[in-house]
């Protein structure tokens, strides 16, 4: 087993072997969960705190469930409502929570780099649940596991990532992960939603959906991030759907057995056709959610093992 990280802050610091290790373990958890198992003790006597400075339903629920299945004491805090409104800085909040001696801290924050900053100030393992437009590593890992299960491998695949790349941390983490695992990545979307310097990312860039989806094994749709848009990126949602929304006609350019993915929550009729999203023959969106729990279990398990190594035998059970 190779997994040397003390935090999971992004895909960028991960070695391909570490990614494989994590996915292998997640695969085991996923299979066991399908077989009906609900309880493990990998995180027994560990405390997990979820700090979400930005609203989230599915990621927070997924982390919470993952922690509970592994036997951790889990506490979730909606940070938007509390101390930040009283003027407390991020670091003070972190130090306060750190003083409660948690073992795992799961953090989402609207500013890029905020989770890195926080990780420097605490003594527990930190998991990035999304920071600004920077990274969302567990999403990329669950996407990778879903792809690996559907395609039987995670290399030499053509993956089209479509839509609002510029505002998407999911896209950044996926570009990094798929690149590290030696896949061919295409970014598809209007140029106003492409990040600057995209040509240097080591990916192909397409402004046309048909061309971008040609012979793709995987079609990954991104949510149009309405809350991150100051306006003026696209003329209208209907024109966007017409040119970049995924429907059966556009999907026909991809390989016949191409899978359709979406990190959720979906804007039906904006970036994806509702019927297609529900088509169980093409869409793996529900499986992505299922793999999310397994990947988060694996990530926390591996970090906990490293944490135990650093700390030494924490307490002797009598």
């Amino acid at each position: 087993m190779t997994f040397r990280q003390t935090h999971l802050l992004g895909i960028e610091p991960l070695h391909p072997e570490e990614i494989s290790t994590l996915l292998d373990l997640a695969q085991d958890y996923a299979e066991a969960a399908r077989a009906g198992r609900r309880h493990w003790d990998a995180l027994a006597d560990f405390t997990q705190i979820n700090m979400f400075f930005e609203a989230s339903t599915r990621t927070q629920a997924s982390f919470e469930l993952a922690g509970k299945r592994l036997g951790a004491d889990v506490m979730s805090m909606a940070m938007g409502a509390s101390s930040l409104k009283k003027g407390e800085t991020l670091i003070d909040t972190a130090l306060t929570l750190n003083a409660m001696r948690p073992d795992l801290l799961v953090v989402r924050h609207p500013n890029s780099g905020a989770v890195d900053l926080l990780a420097q100030k605490v003594t527990c393992a930190v998991l990035n649940a999304g920071d600004g437009r920077h990274e969302h590593p567990t999403q990329a890992l669950l996407d990778a596991l879903t792809i690996r299960r559907a395609k039987g491998r995670l290399h030499r695949l053509t993956v089209a990532i479509c839509g609002d790349i510029a505002h998407s941390r999911v896209a950044r983490s996926n570009i990094l992960l798929l690149g590290k695992m030696e896949n061919r990545v295409r970014l598809v979307g209007p140029p106003t939603l492409m990040p600057a310097g995209v040509a240097e990312f080591g990916v192909e860039v397409c402004e046309d959906m048909a061309e971008g989806l040609r012979d793709a094994d995987v079609v990954m749709m991104l949510r149009l991030q309405k809350e991150r848009m100051d306006g003026g990126f696209i003329p209208s949602e209907r024109e966007y759907f017409h040119r970049y929304g995924l429907d059966a006609a556009k999907l026909s350019h991809a390989k016949e057995d191409a899978i359709v993915m979406h990190p959720g929550p979906m804007n039906r009729g904006v970036e994806i056709d509702g019927t297609l999203a529900d088509d169980i023959n093409r869409s793996v969106i529900q499986e992505q959610v299922e793999m999310g729990v397994a990947v988060r279990m694996a990530a926390m398990d591996l970090l906990a093992r490293n944490l135990r190594q650093v700390r030494g035998p924490r307490e002797v059970m009598v």
Binding site: G113, G132, H134, E135, R172, A196, G197, V198, F201
Partner: peptide, 15 residues
């Protein structure tokens, strides 16, 4: 400053 570095770091950038 806009470019690969700022984009990978997810920072709002200016040309």
């Amino acid at each position: 400053t806009s470019g690969k570095f700022a984009s990978l770091r997810g920072l709002p950038a200016v040309s």
